[in-house]
Design a protein around this nucleic acid. Sequence first.
DNA 1: ACTGTTTATCGTCAGGGAGACGACTATGAT
DNA 2: ATCATAGTCGTCTCCCTGACGATAAACAGT
Lengths: 251, 251
Amino acid sequence: MPYDPSAFPPFAVTVDLVVLTVRNHALCALVVRRGEPPFQGRWALPGGFVRAEEDLEAAAARELKEETGLRSHEPDGSDAGAHLEQLATYGDPQRDPRMRVVSVAHLVLAPDLPAPTAGGDARSARWATADSLLGSGDGMAREGDQAVPLAFDHDRILLDGVERARSKIEYSSLATAFCPPEFTVGELRRVYEAVWGVALDPRNFHRKVTGTPGFLVPTGGTTTRQGGRPAQLFRAGGATLLNPPMLRPEV
Amino acid sequence: MPYDPSAFPPFAVTVDLVVLTVRNHALCALVVRRGEPPFQGRWALPGGFVRAEEDLEAAAARELKEETGLRSHEPDGSDAGAHLEQLATYGDPQRDPRMRVVSVAHLVLAPDLPAPTAGGDARSARWATADSLLGSGDGMAREGDQAVPLAFDHDRILLDGVERARSKIEYSSLATAFCPPEFTVGELRRVYEAVWGVALDPRNFHRKVTGTPGFLVPTGGTTTRQGGRPAQLFRAGGATLLNPPMLRPEV
DNA sequence: ACTGTTTATCGTCAGGGAGACGACTATGAT
DNA sequence: ATCATAGTCGTCTCCCTGACGATAAACAGT
């Protein structure tokens, strides 16, 4: 079946964003309220059409900036900005009732932001805990502030994004993407604890991260912003892969 | 930027397949020769348009069957058939000189096949070693039977697929997808050795795979098809994740 | 100033897994 | 019979991890 540019089914291509951060010791995702049908009034992942001459990653970065004001930092070394990577593509013929839409979902990991919707457009946007959006993962009905599923297949996309984040911080230094440019070992540990939903031993965690070459580089400064004894400040080192990986406690 | 079904850029959506197998102790990929421009006469990954009412995975499974006669086995438990999973999506505006094409690449892992093009259509198709297609990965010019890059951005797609396979057999039982339904520990070890391009200690490998619960289940039979002492035959167990993972030797 | 609380950081110890190899077994080929 | 080829079982050591004690340095309250 060779390419035939004169006869192909018409598709719309969009990008959807799973924007994750850690707030109040909980993994949170950015959701926006839909202003028009279908799914009017329901919460959904931010996203939009890919433009005619726009790369997929560029479209994701543009939507991210439009919705949150966040800059994504390309892997060219610039530090400020959020981590952005392609997640997966969703193309069920029925996923949008109006037309055939293929959505290339992207995953964004960002440090905690002061303003939930800084730089966003007119639509209401907010952070919601992943647990509340995903119904706590135990099949129970959702509780609290979020009672209904997300629009379209965004529940599935969010779940895939959360799973990707949970597994990827095991073997990469990606957890630092949730931290400010300078952070303490304890702050990094709280990121792991929030994303995995478990408690980690502070002493073993400290040994592990400071003993992995290239993971953390000390900046020389200290901080007491978490209370207690002053803690050393670190920046993310050059290493992207963690070998051996950080082990996620079972059950 | 809410959905606007009345005004969206027109896209074509295709699926491309990275079909990998292990032949002669080497990782091989399926390539087909293009019969028409652009890139006429060049080798490319198999693939084609997604139909108007067709799911992405269904399109990948259909193309796979058209090109190789292989059935992909859905995760519904049926055993025969190749493993199929979504790989990534490629949408550079310039990746196809004729029009805007977004391609959802899929990764297929198959046991060694008797006929390279069984069930394929009229186009010529063949297996080529990943090394020859990717230029040995050391920046050297390609040698042997394959001297030119693949069409479009298929070099990049193939590289991503090979990387996915190499990393995924570390922490999953996916290497069994390269094996026939019944296989020996030594055959499984040769899969790892071919995919990773390293030599593994037979004794430690044997201890590792037979000691991981749920990875292998003995069928009771034995075989001498590899020569030497008869080896126990196994089937893939129910476990999909390997914990702890199989460690890839460094360097 | 003293005490309790909180967080950070260093140390110790036991158990498990992996790498390095030795040894033995069971086939087919010469 | 002998050799070559694979497969399988053991052993030993090292390193990493989990469990957990102990110390250090800040702040809050009295």
